[in-house]
């Protein structure tokens, strides 16, 4: 499979705002190539730069130095917890917006709404404002919109980490079986089982650098031993 994402010498730092101004280095001279259809598990301690790496891959942030190349025809969606929803709008309206933000027309987007609602198993809550949702309900909505919108590259930031056990299983199963093999997935998850089940390649990020990159069992074994 051909490459869909390539990072070369990517460095990223944040300027802190307000009274605590200064710079915080998050990614440090990072090289990475991701091929189409890969399912990658991203592990690392809190603050290792996992979420930032996903955002750089998603094209949301420019790197301070280095190059990020993404296949121009591929759509990408970053799904993370509690972010990106408009709390005043219902789950249905949020799904409509998400679909249109992915580039669908209003009509196309409307057609997907039922299927998304069904997958979320939210029932009547689908038409209630998202601010009334629990974190598990939000993650269901986020996951269902990401999964059912035919996104080429899915970046999942801890989104499968909350919610009830049954839905997490359903979501993991959906990643394996519903998602066609040409879709690329990068999964940040603190539960190793989820990565073992879903991914075949693992990346261990530490202090903004890739500490290890390889088959899931190898990387996780070293990661578990050292952390």
């Amino acid at each position: 499979m051909s490459a869909v994402i390539r990072l070369e010498g990517v460095t990223m730092s944040f300027g802190l705002s307000g009274a605590n101004s200064g710079e915080h280095q998050v990614l440090n001279n990072l090289d990475l190539e991701i091929r189409q259809g890969e399912r990658i598990g991203l592990v690392g301690r809190n603050g290792a730069g996992k979420s930032t790496l996903l955002r750089v891959i998603g094209g949301i942030f420019p790197p301070a130095t280095g190059k990020v190349w993404r296949h121009p025809d591929k759509t990408v969606a970053l799904l993370s917890l509690g972010l990106g929803f408009k709390g005043d709008l219902s789950g249905r309206d949020n799904a409509l917006l998400a679909a249109m933000l992915q580039g669908m027309s209003r009509r196309e987007a409307r057609k997907r709404l039922e299927a998304i609602g069904e997958f979320t198993e939210l029932g009547d809550f689908y038409d209630q404002p998202v601010k009334t949702y629990s974190s598990g309900m939000r993650s269901r909505l986020g996951f269902a919109t990401g999964l059912l919108l035919d996104t080429d590259i899915l970046l999942l930031d801890e989104i499968l980490a909350v919610g009830d056990h049954l839905f997490r299983q359903k979501a993991r199963l959906a990643l394996k079986e519903l998602l066609s093999p040409d879709k690329t997935v990068i999964l940040v998850h603190h539960i190793e089982q989820a990565i073992k089940e879903t991914c075949h390649r693992a990346l261990w990020l530490e202090s903004g650098k890739i500490r290890q990159d390889g088959a899931v069992p190898d990387v996780l074994a070293v990661y578990a031993a050292e952390t």
Partner: peptide, 9 residues
């Protein structure tokens, strides 16, 4: 910010 941090819009 939530949406901006998730999508390149």
């Amino acid at each position: 910010a939530g949406l901006i941090g998730r999508m390149d819009l």
